[in-house]
Design a binder for these strands. Structure first.
Lengths: 289, 289
DNA sequence: TCATTTATCTGACTATAGTCAGATAAATTT
DNA sequence: AAATTTATCTGACTATAGTCAGATAAATGA
């Protein structure tokens, strides 16, 4: 059996088993769709985020939420900052209901393990984790995005937060060499987002100068590291740079960002003498295209 | 994250991804249910088998099949041996359609691999195979069955066929020490079946004598070996023997059946001098309960 | 200010995926 | 031969899971 056939076999078996479990343990009173939505609300969420995450029609979500509201499980309100955006949160009754669903769902998962031996269980859980990570990785796609878009801004916020955490001092983008939205928008530059089911989980930017390009804002969400996303983003930025006819790429990085340095080295970047006054940089790299 | 949480995370991710793929690549013209049914027919099948395999309502299958018939994809007939049983097979047009679905499904599976690196692909396929095997194993359940039932007879037929293949000579149950249905039915004995989604994938029997029990007809389908099914069947037979108050279990086996011997030894059976005239046996085992 | 965009809601549909209670006919048991 | 069982079919439902075309109101941009 070749790989493709194995994957298809996997798909058949797994959907069958999980579907059976879900029907048995959830989907009792409420429809499966409503249960999933209830789960996804968690500590409260914007409706537009839920919609995107579950990939559902706006009208459909609206109706599902109203049903849940009538059952007294959720309450709907609007954001103060933007009254168009609806925000759902669980009522105390809803919290109790989610806890119950959680327990049932736990029982369903436990039923998968129950007939197996200790060794089989460990092997199952480990392989599941691998499959899950890789499926997530395979569903991530890259998109060139406007650096001012909501998703891009979210990414950059996370990026700055993380730099502040990992650097010895707080990170202040205004002190750092600039990479403002207008510099990362064609034709001055490019901003690449990595999207996982509508959520931004990584980014990277290329700032084009006349005779070289600068790689900026490389970031991957902690939950998605080790999936090769950084590699994909960097490859895409290099592709864009080549397309622009740039012959040289430069970047600078902080000593705390070891994974980033490993990535650059594996892509053939050579460490060079400092070529900028970037206050947060300890290492400077170059690569000829 | 504990094992249960990991399993739930897996379930969420995987159903989401596979569902998306199926919708994209199949379910185009035809409903997903009809596509699955079409797939399952393969080289032709009894309707009752399809129904059980897919876990569908009789009326529902009937209607789905009629739709496929109207589309000229399948033809329905009855078995000669039993005119109640309907038999579906694909028309030439149906064969072509299945081939097309196959291709689309292949493309869907390939789309999962496509964004991954070589290493990731190998790891994904391997882990998928493990998960699949173990999920199948975990959904197998044991049932005490009548040795004359259709499923039991199917098992025994496979068992005899396999013995004939693996022994140096053909296996003829009438020459072997008897284990006829009436001897394996309570109170004289027990017949245990391992069921995987309504299909029998293993069996084992206990023949009770006044002062000892005999383990007979231990068999596991080739497709399901290494899942611990033999262990589970043997454990169940030992449980039944203990419940009957039997203090000793005996069994004999052929030298070609190495896995079986390993199983018995791992359960604490000791090889003893021949205690029977079984012509197909080379090894005799005993265990005190 | 006016046009456009965004987020949501509503009403009117449709398709899918069933369920359930008989009816029917062949096979099997008594 | 009559009663029961088995495999299927049919008609009449129901629930789920959407889709799609506007309508509405807030926010944003020109």
């Amino acid at each position: 059996m070749n790989d493709i056939a194995k994957i298809r076999q996997f798909n058949r078996t797994v959907t069958h088993h999980i579907g059976a479990l879900e029907n048995e343990f959830l989907g009792r009173e409420r429809s499966l769709g409503a249960s999933r939505l209830l789960f996804e609300i968690g500590a409260g969420a914007e409706v537009r985020v839920l919609r995107e995450r579950l990939g559902l029609d706006s009208g459909y979500v609206s109706r599902l939420l109203r049903t849940l509201e009538h059952q007294g499980l959720v309450q709907l309100g609007s954001l103060k900052e933007d009254a168009r955006v609806r925000f759902v949160s669980l009522t105390p009754k809803g919290v109790k209901e989610v806890a119950l669903l959680d327990k049932l769902s736990d029982r369903g998962a436990a039923a998968m393990l129950e007939p197996l031996s200790e060794k089989q269980r460990a092997s199952l859980v480990e392989s599941m984790a691998t499959v899950e990570r890789l499926l997530r990785a395979s569903s991530i796609n890259l998109a060139t995005s406007d650096p001012g878009s909501r998703l891009a801004q979210q990414c950059l916020t996370h990026y700055y937060e993380e730099l502040s955490e990992r650097f010895e001092m707080a990170f202040d983008p205004s002190v750092s060499i600039s990479a403002a939205p207008e510099e990362l928008r064609p034709p001055q530059g490019y901003f690449v987002l990595a999207l996982l089911q509508g959520e931004a989980v990584g980014c990277g930017a290329l700032k084009c100068h006349t005779d070289f390009g600068e790689i900026k804002r490389m970031w991957v969400a902690a939950s998605c590291r080790g999936m090769g996303i950084g590699r994909r983003i960097l490859a895409q930025l290099e592709f864009l740079a080549r397309e622009r006819g740039l012959a040289l790429l430069r970047l600078e990085t902080n000593k705390a960002l070891l994974e980033a340095q490993a990535l650059y080295k594996s892509f053939g970047y050579q460490e060079v003498a400092p070529f900028s006054e970037e206050p947060y940089a300890h290492h400077w790299f170059e690569k000829e295209l």
